[in-house]
Amino acid sequence: MRSYIYYFLLLTAILAACGKDNRVMYKEDPRIYFSKFATNPDSTDYSFGVKPVGLLTDTAYLTFRIMGTAVDKDREIKVTIADSSKAKAGYHYNLGPLVMPANAYEVRVPVYLYRKPGLKDSIVTIDFTIEESKDFKPGYNDKPGLNVYDRLHYKISLNDQLLKPASWDSRLALSFGVYSKTKFNFMIVTTGKTDWNSTIFPGDQNFLIQTVKLSLYNYEQANGPMLDENGVRVVFP
């Protein structure tokens, strides 16, 4: 009887090594952030002023990206609008469904913008902040590149005016000279380009410069010099 006990103890000791370990896997919380790249800047500066007069509504987009893996069900995204926002929900804008679709890593949520009379003389903003929802915690909050806002915040500024692009003095002035509203409007009309804040690649930039120069030459041939709102002749260097 004793020998059987020995056998049992020994076999138990030997077979103990045959147990299967549970694999220890890292499992992170599902998180979400605003995807921001050079072609998807941190803040949308939208102006109805560079659009056709008849355009009364347009759409901007918030691009959300998840951390972790996609799952097979729709998940809720939560954002709050900061008190600093001057835009009125339902009047200046409406937000599309805040849902990360099943099996998706990224979603573009539409923000419907409305052209309202007050935008002629004021700029309103919509300041978004990602909050924790039942499906996502806020993602990481670094500031990619030269962005002012981190990846948990996004700002849409809305107006109906011809505003000087933020990058004019630092980037556009070299190619297009001194800013004036008249000049900028002429540039938009002749090139059809309305977004002058995002990156312009060299080939496209050359074409824009060539086009405005040629268009101004043709304008002057027909109408004489073009004067801006300050009475200064519009020229391109």
């Binding site: 690649f201 060299p202 080939g203 050359n206 074409f207 060539q210 086009t211 030459y217």
Partner: peptide, 23 residues
């Protein structure tokens, strides 16, 4: 003209260039 090089974006021929006199 059409500028090419190791940069992204489209590369095509552009509009007529003006002379040094701007015409």
């Amino acid at each position: 003209t059409n500028l090419v090089g190791g940069f992204p974006g489209s590369k095509k021929w552009g509009a007529s260039l003006l002379s040094p006199a701007g015409n």
